[in-house]
Structures are given as C-alpha cells and as structure tokens.
Amino acid sequence: MSVSLDLATIWAFIIAFAVFVYIVMDGFDLGLGILFPLFPAKADRDVIMNSVAPVWDGNETWLVLGGGGMMAAFPLAYAVLMPALYTPVITMLLGLVFRGVAFEFRWRTRRERNLWDIAFAGGSLLAALAQGVALGAILQGVHVEGRHYGGGWWDWLTPFSILTGVALVIGYALLGATWLVMKTEGDLRERAYHLSWMFLIAMLGAIGLVSIVTPFLHVQYTQRWFSWPNVILTAPVPIAVAGISALLLRSLARKYDYQPFLLSLTLFGLSYAGLGISMYPYIVPQSITIWQAASPENSQSFMLFGVAVLIPLILGYTAWAYWVFRGKVNATSGFH
C-alpha cells in the first residue's frame, strides 16, 4: 500500500479532511439532538441548545464543503454515489432541515416549543442514522455501469449498513455527552458523565462489531488489514484504539473536564483512519479509484490554490468564534 503524492491523492486527503472535520464538529452537535429526549426539563434544553447555537451553522458548512468539494474534485464519484445513496442522502437532508430550523423556531413560540424540540431530536437522530447507513452502503460497494450508478433504489439497505448507522448514532451521542461534560456544570454535568459512560461502552461494542464484519465484506479489506507486511502498518490502529479507550475510561472516572471530549474525538479519528486504510485508493469501493474519478488537473489545481490559502484562514476565524463563546454555559449567564 504505497501512497504517491499526486494531485488526485492530495485532493483525496483534502476531501477526507473536510469530511472528518464535519464528523467531528457536527458529530457532537447532532449528538446533542440525539440526547435531547434524555433531558426533558426545559431549563436543561435551553442550556444544551445555547451551547451550540453560535456555532452550528459553521459546523454544518463542512458538510457542504465535503459534498461540493467532491463534485469539484471527483465528479464521477459524486455522480455515482449520490444516486446510489439517494434515500439516505435525502433523509439526511430532511433531518438537517428540521433540526436546523429548530434552533430559531423553538425560541419564537411557547405553545409549539415541544414540537420543535421533537423536530430537533428527531431530525438529529435521522441525520446521524442516515449518515452511518450511507457510510456502510459505500463500504459494501455499489453497482456501477459505465459512468452511472447501475443498481436499484433500495440497494443501500443491508444488515451491515444498519449496523454502521446505529454505530454512528452511538458515536455521536458519545461526542454530545462529553461535549456537555465540558460545557455545563452542576446536575446537568453529572448526568452527562453518566451518559458518557453508557455511550462509551456501547461505542466500543459497535467499533468491535464493525471491525469484525468489515474484513469479510471484500477480499481487498481482508488483505489490506491482515496480509504481511501490511499488518505492520495496520496493527497500530487497533492497539491505539485500546489505549485511547483506557485513557477515556480513566478520564471519566476522574471526572476530568476537557479530556473526555478530546479523547472521544481521538477515538473517532482512529476509526476514521481505519476506514481510510480499508478504502484507499478506491473512492467507490471495488470499482472507481480516485484517479479514475478525478476531475481534470486544471480544475483540481485551480481549487488547490484556494484551499491552501483559505482553509487556514477559515480554521483561524472558526477557532476565534469558539473562543468567544468559550467556558461553561448555564441558564442565567448564557451568551445573551
């Protein structure tokens, strides 16, 4: 498994980076929605909402970069994958629509606030589930004919894609819970610790299950992970997962503030790296490589210029916005 540094590879890393930043940022954000039903009191919900209200739009913009960037850098992959994932993608979009408007709508009505709380929780859950299902559907491979998707509109639905869907919901819930540990105080924080424990255990189980099943989907995955000398490269991943999990358990036991969230993110990073190892260099597993899907060089280099200049800038002012709203959120101080 050698990686040569050509334009298509650079772009594969950029898109992978955008998607990862999206998973990290919108992950905890969707996770809060998933946890919403477990916090029925209005005061708690206000705090939870306010802890992300200033940043949720920026978090979701990474999804737009992932999709738009893919259309730009790998149009063929975008053109094949989107129809293949038609139902999960549309479901995700509808979920995001409902949870997105809830950020403002729930403050504008007293009578229907519960309805928008349901929209926020349901939309978040649906979006997370759909993203996980889409991931599983990509991993198991799609049917390609020429330059088109050649399968039916229910091909994505398999036990494996359901498994990855549920796994992602659990993972996002863990991110949400540890985010709350970091951003809240008092009773709310206590309950967030408790939930972090539960979702961590569930997440480890899910990682285990997905890792056991994935190598059996295709020979390529098996060879990638278990054949000599690849093992030297791949073995550190599960070892690191074990190590990080131990640290995470310890930080929860000792009630640290920031560590649980940061370690959960690391856990996500490792799982993501594992995915990358399985897929590379395919962008549509088993059928289209990043080089086959790449758009012409002058499109990729035109954008590379913008990415090189703008992404650091974006990361800079995004960090500033997080800094402005740093610290604990509670019912009386808020941001307001």
């Binding site: 739009d57 920026g58 979701e60 913009t61 737009v64 970069l65 738009g68 960037g69 259309m71 730009a72 850098a73 149009p75 063929l76 975008y78 053109a79 758009s295 012409p296 499109s299 035109f302 954008m303 913008g306 990415v307 703008l310 992404i311 974006i314 002012y317 995004t318 500033w320 916005a321």
Partner: peptide, 22 residues
C-alpha cells in the same frame, strides 16, 4: 463538475464559511 464544482467550492470557502463563522 469540473467547471461548476470548483465555483461552488470557492463559494463554500470564501462565502459560506465567512457567513457561518461570524
């Protein structure tokens, strides 16, 4: 995609992040 895509990517990078970030 090779033409519309980069324009939309630039829109995300120069506009959407700016709006959302601030």
């Amino acid at each position: 995609g090779p033409i519309i895509g980069p324009m939309m990517a630039y829109e995300v990078l120069t506009a959407f992040f700016l709006e959302a970030g601030f």
